[in-house]
Nucleic acid binder design. Structure first.
Length: 104
DNA sequence: TGGGTGACTAAGT
DNA sequence: CACTTAGCCACCC
């Protein structure tokens, strides 16, 4: 399983773990929280190491969860009462306007 | 060491 | 409101 987690990875995971239930952050927000704007690198890290953190609390700025994981994420959102916005087509997105969290 | 890649973002159509 | 284009930066091999 390798365990690099020198800096970036550790910090990303730390921020994600600091997000309380019912709240969420965008990848860019997490990157900014650690002093970087590498939103994509955050996603890369999440895809690889996110299995140990509440990855569903980290989503795109659009409010859409990662492709192929929207179903699993939805279960968590319903469980944690995360504010959601449903589209007419049946698609949903997290209401970041309300759920946005900042690691104090 | 360096190239290719992506769980991204903002702006334009 | 949804899709497309180009720019970004760190991760992995």
């Amino acid at each position: 399983m390798t365990a690099p987690a020198d800096d970036f990875v550790s910090r990303v995971l730390a921020v994600v773990e600091s997000i309380p239930p019912g709240r969420a952050m965008s990848y860019g927000d997490v990157a900014a929280a650690i002093g970087s704007r590498a939103a994509r690198a955050v996603g890369q890290t999440m895809a690889y190491y996110g299995s140990d953190v509440p990855w569903w609390r980290v989503i795109r700025s659009s409010g859409h969860p990662p492709e192929n994981h929207e179903t699993a994420a939805l279960e968590q959102y319903r469980t944690e009462s995360t504010p959601l916005i449903w589209s007419a087509a049946g698609h949903y997105r997290v209401d970041l306007r309300r759920a946005r969290w900042s690691p104090d």
